[in-house]
Structure formats: C-alpha cells, structure tokens
Computed example of a mutant assay.
Amino acid sequence: MKITNRSLHRDLAYFYVGLIIAFSFSGIILNHRQDWYPMDYTYENKSFELTIPSEEAQLTKEYITGLTKEIGKYDGHRVRNGKIRVYFKDNIILDADVETGKGTIEYKRKVPVIGHSMYLHKSTNSFWIWYSDIFGIAMLVIALTGVLIPLGKKGFKGRGWKLAVAGMLFPLLFLFLFA
C-alpha cells in the first residue's frame, strides 16, 4: 500500500474518530462546567445541624470526625467566612454555619457515561498522557495532510490559506484580548 497524504489523513481520522468525538464532547461540557458539571451533581439534599464549639480552633479533624461519623468517611474540611464545609468519601459534602450549626448535606454522583468521560480530559495517568500526546501529534498530521489534499482554486494555495489564517486568528485574538 502506497502512503499518500490522502491515505494517511483518512486512516488516522478513522483510527481516532472515537477519541475525537469523546474529546470534543467532554471539551464542550468542560467549557460550560459553571452551568452544568456532570462529574458531580446533587441528587439528594438533607438539612442537618451540628454541635459546633464556641471557638473555631476546636474544629479539628478529630472533633469533626467524631461528630460526623454516621454521615460517611471523613475526607477533609475547611472553615471560611463563618461557614464550615466537610468533605466525605463517596461525594458527600456537609455545609454548615459556624454560629448556628445549621446546614445541609449534599449527596452527589456522576452522570452516567458523560460524567465518566470527563476523566479523558482530566486524567493524570501516565499511559493516558502518552496516548493523548500521540493523539495530539496525530491531530497535527490530520490537519496538515488535510490541508495538502485539495488542489486548485479551492485548495490551500487558492482560498485555503485565507481560511487557515482566519481560523488561527480566533484563538490568537482570544489569547490577547481575554486571557
């Protein structure tokens, strides 16, 4: 089989079509994570009241662990602006007012398939990073071979270079104006 721009472009695109779709989909979701974040959504909310000591310094890991052991396995906490937030394993979060002790417990879970696909963009697994780097190189090859396929007035030497420049201007403008 002879390797040409067209065959290399086509075969890499076929091989990576699933990952292109998955990265595109999860990338769009990540762009809108302030509105909807499928990696954890609240499926249950309960009111709760804690017995909080008068001094904030007494809110230690040991104190909070003993106070909340029936909720779940303690994973960490923070006190900020008169509020305490306690994190538990299994995506459980307790928020309470330090003065009154009144608050809520949120039980969260991932949206099936969509929430799990977000790991593709967020994974720090070394195998996945290498695979993603190879994918990035393949995307460059797909882009460059795609540019070189068409000939004539609709090819790169005709109008293609103008579209390529226009396409590159958008990210550059964004970087200089908004970043």
Rank of each mutant, 00 (worst) to 15 (best):
E55F: 06
E55D: 15
E56S: 11
E56M: 09
A57L: 10
A57D: 15
Q58H: 01
L59Y: 00
L59R: 01
L59W: 00
L59N: 01
L59K: 01
T60N: 08
T60G: 09
K61Q: 09
E62L: 10
E62F: 06
Y63V: 08
Y63H: 03
Y63I: 10
Y63Q: 06
Y63G: 08
I64P: 01
I64Y: 03
I64T: 03
I64R: 01
T65H: 10
T65S: 14
G66V: 08
G66E: 13
L67A: 15
L67F: 13
L67M: 15
T68L: 13
T68S: 14
T68C: 13
T68H: 09
K69Y: 12
K69G: 06
E70W: 07
E70F: 10
I71N: 04
I71C: 05
I71A: 04
G72F: 07
G72P: 08
G72Y: 06
G72C: 11
K73E: 15
K73A: 14
K73M: 09
K73S: 12
Y74W: 13
Y74E: 11
D75S: 09
D75F: 01
G76E: 13
G76M: 12
H77M: 10
H77L: 08
R78E: 11
R78S: 06
R78D: 04
V79Y: 05
R80D: 09
N81A: 13
N81Y: 02
N81F: 03
K83M: 14
K83F: 10
I84D: 02
I84Q: 01
I84P: 00
R85F: 06
R85V: 11
V86Y: 02
V86G: 02
V86W: 02
